[in-house]
Nucleic acid binder design. Structure first.
Lengths: 97, 97
DNA sequence: TATACATTATATGCAATTACATAATGAGTG
DNA sequence: CACTCATTATGTAATTGCATATAATGTATA
C-alpha cells in the first residue's frame, strides 16, 4: 500500500463528503442529469454543481450534453468498486463497529 | 447508503490521509508501539502522535500501556474491512483507473 | 528522594484548504 | 429576448495539516 497511499488517500478524500459519496452511489446505478441528481439528493443547485466539479476534476465522473441538460456518469471503475465495497461493509452484513 | 452517508463519509475522511491510511494498514497486521510505528512510517514524533489521536478519537484504534511504551491496535472492524477492500482494489487486480 | 533519561502526548500558532452561500455568467432553445 | 438548465465567481467562517515548543508519565540509578 505504501507507494499508493497518496493516490488512495486522495480518492478517499474526494469520496469523504456526504454529498459526493451519495452522488457516486447514485451514479453507480447509471447516468443521471444534473436536474435528476438535484431531486434525488435534495441539495441547492450551485452546491451540487460545485461537488460535481470536484468529482469531475478527480476524473471520477464525466459528462455528456444533450440540449440544455448535462448527463453525468461514473468513469473511475475504482471509485465504483470502493463504493460497492462500502455498501457491503456498511449496508449488508450486520455486525456493528 | 443514504442514511449512513454521514457515518461512512466520516470514516473515509479519517482514512483519507496518507499517514493515517498507512497507520491503519500497518495495524491490520497487529499491535505496534508508537516507537515502532515511528520507524515504520518515518514521520516526526509529534505529528505521529497527533494522527494517532485522530484515529483514537474516531474509535478506529485503542491503546494499552506497557511501561513507558504505548501499544496501538485496531478496534474498528469496519476500518480493517475498508482497508482490505482498498488493498484488493488498488493493490491486487490490475486494471487501472 | 532527586535527577536524568526515554517514551509519548499536548499546546500553540499559522499557512493552506474546505465547505458553502449569494450573486453573476454561460449555453441552449423557442 | 426570455426562459431553462447548469456552471463559475467571490467572500468568508470553519477546518486541517503540521511544525516548534512544552508537558506528562514511567523507569533507572545515584
Amino acid at each position: 500500500m505504501e507507494p499508493r497511499a497518496g493516490e488512495v488517500a486522495s480518492l478517499l478524500k474526494t469520496l469523504a463528503h456526504p454529498t459526493r459519496l451519495m452522488l457516486v452511489c447514485t451514479l453507480v446505478e447509471g447516468e443521471y442529469s444534473v436536474g435528476r441528481l438535484e431531486e434525488a439528493l435534495d441539495i441547492h443547485q450551485p452546491n451540487l454543481s460545485q461537488q460535481l466539479t470536484i468529482l469531475r476534476d478527480a476524473k471520477i465522473v464525466e459528462t455528456r450534453r444533450e440540449g440544455k441538460q448535462i448527463f453525468y456518469r461514473l468513469t473511475a471503475k475504482r471509485a465504483a468498486k470502493v463504493v460497492s465495497a462500502l455498501y457491503s461493509i456498511f449496508c449488508s452484513d450486520g455486525e456493528p463497529s
